[in-house]
Simulated scan of single mutants.
Amino acid sequence: MRIAFYGSSLLSSYWNGAATYYRGLLKQMALLGHDVTFYEPDAYDRQKNRDMDPPDWCRVVVYDATEEALARVTAEAADYDVVVKASGVGVFDNELLVQTMAAARSDAIRIYWDVDAPATLAEIQPDAAHPLRVTLPSLDAVCTYGGGQPVIDAYTALGARAVHPIYNGLDPETHHPVPADSRFSVDLAFLGNRLPDREKRVEDFFLDAAARIPEKSFLLGGSGWGDKHMPDNVRYIGHVGTGDHNAFNCSPMAVLNINRDSMAATGFSPPTRVFEATGAGACLICDAWTGLEMFLEPDTEVLVARDGRDVGEIMSGLTRERADEIGKAALSRVLRDHTYASRAQEVHRLLRAMRDAKAEPTPA
Rank of each mutant, 00 (worst) to 15 (best):
residue 325 E to C: 11
residue 87 S to A: 14
residue 276 E to I: 13
residue 7 G to K: 05
residue 233 N to K: 01
residue 271 P to T: 14
residue 185 S to T: 15
residue 142 V to A: 09
residue 38 F to D: 04
residue 297 E to C: 00
residue 153 D to K: 01
residue 171 D to M: 13
residue 256 L to A: 11
residue 173 E to Q: 15
residue 260 R to A: 10
residue 128 A to F: 08
residue 361 P to A: 11
residue 343 R to L: 02
residue 13 S to K: 09
residue 31 L to A: 14
residue 14 Y to M: 11
residue 98 V to W: 03
residue 310 D to L: 05
residue 13 S to V: 09
residue 276 E to W: 01
residue 90 G to W: 11
residue 34 H to N: 07
residue 283 C to S: 12
residue 100 T to K: 03
residue 23 R to G: 07
residue 217 S to Q: 12
residue 321 E to G: 01
residue 22 Y to A: 01
residue 170 L to N: 14
residue 288 A to I: 05
residue 272 T to H: 03
residue 356 D to G: 07
residue 209 A to L: 04
residue 308 G to P: 00
residue 249 N to T: 07
residue 130 H to E: 08
residue 321 E to C: 02
residue 187 D to C: 07
residue 259 N to F: 04
residue 334 V to S: 12
residue 2 R to Q: 10
residue 281 G to L: 11
residue 212 R to I: 06
residue 313 E to F: 00
residue 341 A to C: 07
residue 59 R to H: 07
residue 143 C to G: 01
residue 293 E to M: 09
residue 224 G to E: 05
residue 271 P to F: 03
residue 305 A to M: 09
residue 140 D to R: 04
residue 309 R to I: 10
residue 300 T to H: 07
residue 53 D to W: 12
residue 233 N to Y: 09
residue 344 A to D: 03
residue 106 S to N: 11
residue 96 L to P: 03
residue 322 R to S: 13
residue 296 L to R: 08
residue 81 D to Q: 13
residue 336 R to H: 04
residue 294 M to F: 00
residue 39 Y to A: 02
residue 338 H to Q: 06
residue 37 T to E: 10
residue 129 A to S: 14
residue 100 T to P: 00
residue 236 Y to E: 09
residue 255 V to A: 13
residue 55 P to R: 09
residue 323 A to I: 05
residue 137 P to K: 15
residue 130 H to M: 06
residue 271 P to C: 04
residue 23 R to N: 03
residue 277 A to V: 12
residue 19 A to M: 15
residue 293 E to V: 14
residue 204 D to T: 04
residue 205 F to V: 05
residue 31 L to W: 01
residue 13 S to Q: 08
residue 292 L to K: 08
residue 303 L to S: 01
residue 32 L to C: 00
residue 165 P to T: 07
residue 222 G to K: 02
residue 345 Q to P: 00
residue 331 L to G: 01
residue 291 G to V: 13
residue 66 T to N: 08
residue 149 Q to S: 00
residue 215 E to I: 02
residue 287 D to V: 07
residue 323 A to E: 04
residue 134 V to F: 12
residue 67 E to G: 02
residue 327 G to K: 12
residue 217 S to N: 09
residue 48 K to R: 14
residue 201 R to G: 06
residue 325 E to S: 03
residue 211 A to R: 15
residue 172 P to A: 14
residue 171 D to T: 06
residue 321 E to S: 08
residue 188 L to H: 06
residue 322 R to Q: 15
residue 213 I to M: 05
residue 179 P to M: 08
residue 340 Y to G: 01
residue 323 A to R: 04
residue 161 R to D: 00
residue 349 R to K: 14
residue 16 N to W: 01
residue 351 L to Q: 06
residue 15 W to H: 15
residue 262 S to N: 15
residue 3 I to H: 03
residue 222 G to F: 10
residue 236 Y to R: 05
residue 6 Y to I: 10
residue 97 L to G: 10
residue 116 D to V: 06
residue 149 Q to P: 01
residue 76 E to P: 05
residue 57 W to D: 02
residue 328 K to R: 12
residue 330 A to S: 06
residue 74 T to M: 02
residue 78 A to S: 15
residue 18 A to Q: 07
residue 210 A to R: 10
residue 113 W to A: 00
